[in-house]
């Protein structure tokens, strides 16, 4: 039931994903979520994910070695997803010292393996920065869980968010975001098998309810 309705391949499922900033004020912690995919528990009555032809977005990600095209051709195709985020940039938290920018994510899988998580930021389809993290499995409730907890956001991303937030109009932010993408590839560290590949694209949220998203399967018909 998960495979057609959530970000899940045959071997790995994304449980949660968030990019946030956090600060302490008057002994209380304030957290603002830029983007967030919360836990879900879909049933057979829920609709299956819509599809997008992967060729429509190849040029938005690196087309060099290790780019989306090469990865998709290697497969497995059921591991490829696109997430359209409507990011919440409405935070009024003051920038500066004492503010922590982080990314947390959680995955669950069927095998006791070590995963490698590569996050590539692309500007105009060209990779500008990459972070590679290694995570080990923890057995929880009969499944293997992988947790990347409060991974610090890189300087490039923090500066990017600052500049984006200071643009006067939302259409200007969306114009910048049109050429900004992130590719996350989770692979088995030993075998290099792709377990999950998520292409992120962005707009700015106009909602009062914070960050929103749509998930699509990437196909090649």
């Amino acid at each position: 039931v998960w495979q057609d309705r959530t970000i899940a391949s045959a071997k790995l499922r994304l449980l949660e994903y968030s990019a946030f900033l956090e600060t302490q004020r008057d002994r209380e912690t304030y957290k603002h979520l830029f983007v967030h995919i919360g836990p879900s528990n879909p049933g057979y009555n829920d609709p299956v994910l819509e599809s997008i032809d992967v060729r429509q977005i190849y040029d938005k990600f690196s087309e060099k070695k290790g780019g989306l095209k090469e990865l998709y051709e290697k497969g497995p195709h059921n591991a490829f997803f696109l997430v359209k985020f409507w990011a919440d940039l409405s935070s009024d938290i003051e920038e500066g010292s004492g503010v922590f920018y982080g990314v947390s994510s959680q995955y669950s899988g069927t095998e006791n393996i070590t995963i490698s998580v590569s996050t590539k930021v692309c500007s105009f389809g060209k990779q500008v920065v990459e972070k590679v993290e290694t995570e080990y499995a923890h057995m929880e409730g009969g499944k293997y869980v992988f947790r990347i907890h409060r991974s610090p956001m890189c300087e490039y991303m923090i500066n990017f968010i600052h500049k984006l937030k200071h643009l006067p109009e939302k259409y200007m932010m969306n114009s910048v975001l049109e050429n900004f993408t992130i590719l996350q590839v989770v692979s088995n560290r030993e075998t290099q098998e792709t377990l999950l590949c998520i292409a992120f694209v962005f707009e700015v949220s106009t909602s009062e309810h914070g960050a929103q998203y749509h998930v699509y399967r990437l196909v090649n018909d």
């Binding site: 105009f124 309810h209 929103q212 998203y213 749509h214």
Partner: peptide, 24 residues
């Protein structure tokens, strides 16, 4: 230098791609 890309609006994408969900 940046290569000019086809705008996302001109690509074959589902209608929902442009519709921000009300709530998630």
């Amino acid at each position: 230098c940046a290569v000019e890309q086809v705008p996302m609006r001109k690509r074959q994408l589902p209608a929902s791609f442009w519709e921000e969900p009300k709530l998630t």
